[in-house]
Write a protein that binds this DNA or RNA. Sequence first.
DNA 1: GTCAGTGCAAAAGTTTTGCATACAG
DNA 2: CTGTATGCAAAACTTTTGCACTGAC
Lengths: 155, 155
Amino acid sequence: MIENIEYDALLERFKRVLRDNGLKYTKQREVLLQTLYNNSEHFTPEQLYLYIKERHPGLNVGIATVYRSLNLLEESGMVTSISFGVQGKKFELANKPHHDHMICRQCGVIVEFEDQIIEKRQLAIAKEHGFKLTGHIMQLYGVCGECNKQKIKGI
Amino acid sequence: MIENIEYDALLERFKRVLRDNGLKYTKQREVLLQTLYNNSEHFTPEQLYLYIKERHPGLNVGIATVYRSLNLLEESGMVTSISFGVQGKKFELANKPHHDHMICRQCGVIVEFEDQIIEKRQLAIAKEHGFKLTGHIMQLYGVCGECNKQKIKGI
DNA sequence: GTCAGTGCAAAAGTTTTGCATACAG
DNA sequence: CTGTATGCAAAACTTTTGCACTGAC
């Protein structure tokens, strides 16, 4: 096992949240967190379930546990969910370094980016409205260079 | 019926999209568009269905038509959907003036806002990546002033 | 008149729940 | 040991589809 201070800190935080709420630390929950940590993709509960089953054949997981854990993690603020267009709700770790998404409507390619100017404005805006920001998702929709040539009839 | 140039333009655009795609203009579709236009709220398909049934008792609508129409409108780019927290996917008109959403994780309240600095940066970023922007969704997640007092144990 | 649109009900898909067992604390 | 977590299967909920009929063009 490769040492990873960042992940260790995340795990500690996870354990603390569990402890603080009288919940238990189980292998299933750790694997879930680990999977979200190791993959920058956004998972639907279904995908996460299949992924874990495949990568951890020894571990018995049920889809119900995945749902229960995701809801738990989301409630505690460690995980966030968003939805991209038609596909269902997707989950990702909440405390990844700030990043945003640019999505091609045509081919679905996702480009991640980060912009300090926007980050700062977001904080300021939240403050103006009395919100305590816990996270954000910015999704820019458009057509990527590749797809620009084959545009369908739209608006 | 009160005159409303903005709505008329929207309706025209709608009719054109329908025509261009060989689709038909029906009362159900118009009522749907009208409802989205008249209400700044974000509707789930279910909510929209109930709302229309209530406000247009004469018009027979099925939930299936609501789903079909929303998907159609979304595909054509006239309507967008977002999802936040536990509640399902919600729809709104796509061409409202640019605005973004700040969502309370706790109570689900949505505050709309708009910020020119961010709008401009978005355009610039898209350009940098070769994207032609067609829209965007920015969702700031947090805890609103009201809910801040009753915060559950989280991170 | 033709063919897309509709409501309804059934089907498919998604998420939650009940329960008996397993296992963390 | 106690009580939470789990897997499984059933239940609840959400979304889509098939079909016969309606209505826009």
